[in-house]
């Protein structure tokens, strides 16, 4: 099917009196890597959770591969999620399961793959994110934060999704580990031919993994352009954000 793989149309979401999203319009094409930047509390995570169906928008519509999935439930939601991967900010690994069981979770529990086959595929996928089979039998609490992000990345790509969401993929990592994770994200997204939507406020990460960058401010997309243009966008809000200046139209969130 032609057209964008993911399309958000006039998305609005409020929590009580606090309006977080005020009409977000966003399109992501197949195979495209889009990074959404924005300050803390700008609504990036809320937008992602709405797109994933973990939260329902108050207004607006969400289309996945041309289908309206705004209020999808049951089979329709499962069909969509089977084609989507997600790397959570915290990794969100299940701490009662071993590393390989985490990676193979979807295969075993949703696709009905036999444990032996699922384990082999999990170990293969762990190798793709540069983790050896010795890690497979460990529990998430026994590995470092960087390794947890890699395991979470392996879990998000094992089913070869068409679209992968990355929520602050480098938050809490040292610069070298963060760069290694960025490299892996670029490599995995390209090798799968998947579309990617990442949210971050780490500009080094954004420039490395994005084809295009969009900026979310006060619940709206205020700029979108090529990753190469972000440092010279001509938009006062974007300029202030990407150069990390306290002075400018955006008030620091303190």
């Amino acid at each position: 099917m032609s057209g964008p793989l993911l399309k958000l149309e006039g998305l609005e979401k409020a929590f009580g009196a606090k309006q977080v999203l005020r009409g977000v319009d966003l399109e992501v094409a197949r195979g495209q890597s889009l990074v959404v930047i924005g300050g803390s509390g700008s609504g990036k995570s809320v937008m992602l959770k709405n797109a994933l169906g973990l939260m329902m928008p108050d207004r607006g519509r969400i289309f996945f591969d041309g289908e309206d999935v705004t209020n999808a439930t049951g089979k329709a939601r499962e069909t969509m999620r089977a084609r989507v991967g997600m790397l959570f900010q915290s990794g969100a690994l299940f701490d009662s399961l071993t590393v390989w069981e985490n990676v193979a979770f979807r295969l075993i529990n949703s696709e009905g793959t036999r444990r032996k086959d699922a384990k082999e595929r999990a170990i293969e996928t762990l190798k793709k994110v540069r983790l050896g089979s010795d890690v497979a039998l460990l529990y998430p609490a026994e590995i470092s934060g960087g390794m947890q992000k890699r395991v979470s990345l392996a879990r998000s790509i094992i089913s070869k999704p068409d679209l992968i969401f990355f929520d602050e993929p480098t938050t809490g990592l040292d610069p070298i580990t963060a760069d290694a994770i960025n490299d892996l994200i670029v490599e995995m997204v390209r090798s799968l031919g998947a579309a990617a939507v990442s949210i971050t406020h780490d500009m080094a990460s954004a420039r490395k993994i994005a084809d295009e960058i969009a900026m979310l401010f006060e619940g709206r997309i205020i700029w979108r352009g090529k990753a190469a243009d972000v440092m010279n966008s001509g938009n006062a809000y974007v300029d202030q954000f990407v150069h990390g200046r306290a002075d400018g139209p955006i008030q620091p969130a303190i």
Binding site: K49, L52, G53, L54, E78, R81, A82, V84, G85, M86, F88, Q89, S90, A92, L93, F94, D95, F105, R106, N109, S110, R155
Partner: peptide, 12 residues
């Protein structure tokens, strides 16, 4: 720790 959100995104 978002494990329940992760569970839902993994179709469980």
């Amino acid at each position: 720790t978002e494990q329940i959100d992760a569970l839902e995104t993994l179709s469980a």
